[in-house]
Design a protein around this nucleic acid. Sequence first.
DNA 1: CCTATAATTCTAAACATGTCGAATTATAGA
DNA 2: TCTATAATTCGACATGTTTAGAATTATAGG
Lengths: 110, 110
Amino acid sequence: MSNYRIDSALLCEAFKALSNPNRLALFNRLMNCCAPGTKCSPAAAVRYCVSELGEGLDIAPSTLSHHLKELNRAGLVEMKRKGKNVECWVEPAKLERLNAFFQSSQSDIL
Amino acid sequence: MSNYRIDSALLCEAFKALSNPNRLALFNRLMNCCAPGTKCSPAAAVRYCVSELGEGLDIAPSTLSHHLKELNRAGLVEMKRKGKNVECWVEPAKLERLNAFFQSSQSDIL
DNA sequence: CCTATAATTCTAAACATGTCGAATTATAGA
DNA sequence: TCTATAATTCGACATGTTTAGAATTATAGG
């Protein structure tokens, strides 16, 4: 309970990041990067570069960049430059933390 | 996949509703209404009325009412008038649907 | 019917967000 | 070094959100 404020603020930021349709679509694309039945692992996960992630979303590159920055700032998406591209991926641990919030109604995550 | 748009829109609305610190606090208070180790059930769940939920949040009654309306609109919180009060509670099924999003990275919820 | 309490609606103001286009930076390769 | 591609930053604008206060509705009880 000592970290009430911190955790609730972090959770809130995560939800805010996912509250936009375009960002939710981006995040979902990254979540679904693994083969069925397996969990994403940083080493094995398929990674998308920024422009690949934006395909079919019909938003300007600057908007795409902005949204990925928000997802990254919220701690939901990792990013790293690799040559001309910037690779994006989701750390499995992040999913588990969000999962925990809804899973246990008596959790003291907040 | 046929309900791609519908489901993603609903999810997005849920996240938007939880993206505000006050609403997240309200929702959390309702989630934590059950005894440890048990899941909320509509019949057994402790219900809070609007003013009880707002205690300690330091927001005006009109603001409180607005936020609960948003949570209700997003499908996260149920409300029903009982005398002078309006009772609020969380349906367990809603928690499970949100849970499912983060749980299975290969889900086709979107 | 009158009053007190609980909650909502309405209005308005301050603030935040989503979006694009133009300019800029980063990198690889000729 | 020059060019092409990928991505980001900046500036601006339209739209949406948060919030409080005043007015209004709903209900219970005398």
